[in-house]
Design a protein around this nucleic acid. Sequence first.
DNA 1: TAAAAAATTTAGATTAGTCTAAATATTTTA
DNA 2: TAAAATATTTAGACTAATCTAAATTTTTTA
Lengths: 216, 216
Amino acid sequence: MNTFTEENYLKAIYHLSLQSSSVSTNQIAASLNTKAASVTDMLKKLAEKGLINYTKYQGVTLTAAGEKIAVSIIRKHRLWEYFLVEKLNFKWDEVHDVAEELEHISSKELVDRLDDFMGHPKYDPHGDPIPDSNGLFKTHELKPVATLVINENGIISGVRDHSTAFLQYLERMQLTIGKKIKVTEINDYDHSVILQVEDKKVHISREVANNLLIAI
Amino acid sequence: MNTFTEENYLKAIYHLSLQSSSVSTNQIAASLNTKAASVTDMLKKLAEKGLINYTKYQGVTLTAAGEKIAVSIIRKHRLWEYFLVEKLNFKWDEVHDVAEELEHISSKELVDRLDDFMGHPKYDPHGDPIPDSNGLFKTHELKPVATLVINENGIISGVRDHSTAFLQYLERMQLTIGKKIKVTEINDYDHSVILQVEDKKVHISREVANNLLIAI
DNA sequence: TAAAAAATTTAGATTAGTCTAAATATTTTA
DNA sequence: TAAAATATTTAGACTAATCTAAATTTTTTA
């Protein structure tokens, strides 16, 4: 078994790997709010355990074993988030911190039964895919609302920014997962966008349009 | 916030306090599978934090603050056990270890919503009372089956031994919480007891009769 | 392409929790 | 009630994870 800290490092490396193939010490330090020196120490330990490929000064990648652990933690995180929202009536902006704790509960039996209990959901409350008990999942293809042209429509299916502030903003604007939207106007000057959402018009900034994702 | 370890010490002290008013270093060491020297170190720390009353060589008691924490952990433990059995179909002998992990999830909001979700159960799968969100609970009065005389009956409402082995044995014998039993015979020689349970007779040893509890 | 800047690693400490072995206090018992 | 037995604490050490400051390597840039 691995410690919570090791699991958090693996998860951070996994997420960072989705952006750039190799992950740097400083990137990890920033994402975990810790210092580069601490990261170096942990990287040695994880390399020792065969969970990452690490060469001094050259950044890291996960090994198959490391990736498997990372994915299992992400599975737990997203399943718990789904549970919190669907069964316990938490809001989508309230679940992250609790799921950060729950994801470290070790019992695989527990997660698999929880998955059964909820009917094997495919996506979490933020639209992120939930790996199955074998670690398999399909990333559905998404693109920012900002890439749409006038009169194009789509279904809100994910967010690029998972911050509480952004989620609360979307909630307030009724821009939530599953909603059908249509671009009715794009402002040439500031690239802000006006959307038709159900029977309302919603005006969003370019920044919001970049962080709000629709299914392709 | 307190560490998992501190929480485990407080919980252990709480449980031991139910037997004897003051709890000794060795009792704690035994119950946590650790060494007396380690316990002494932790007792100093907990006393420092105002969670226990500790005088060298004199044993410890919980302060009101310490007891409050202990009870909140027990609440979480028992609610999770109930959830695991009632919602996820775990057996009553399978839930302890998972609940030992889940009880340290800190969110009070989570526990209270879980409690709502399950309809505020009063007892966990082993018949132990679940404290409410204010830490209040009533210990229902219980006595061992061994105290019954011939023709007395009662309802199985708890166990004194929570070990997997004992729980599995009871399960196999269909001696589970809520079952109505009647003593039909007591063996003078070994004090073993024959019970009428529904339409079956079950023969149990004195030891089992001592660890199986019925409501008074 | 050599100096400057940035990134990374190493060295040496610190804190939490644990341990063993030795010292001390309390309790038992003869 | 004094010796023996038992319980508890102290001293000193270890591991995991972290930090700061200094040293080293890599990258950038002029």
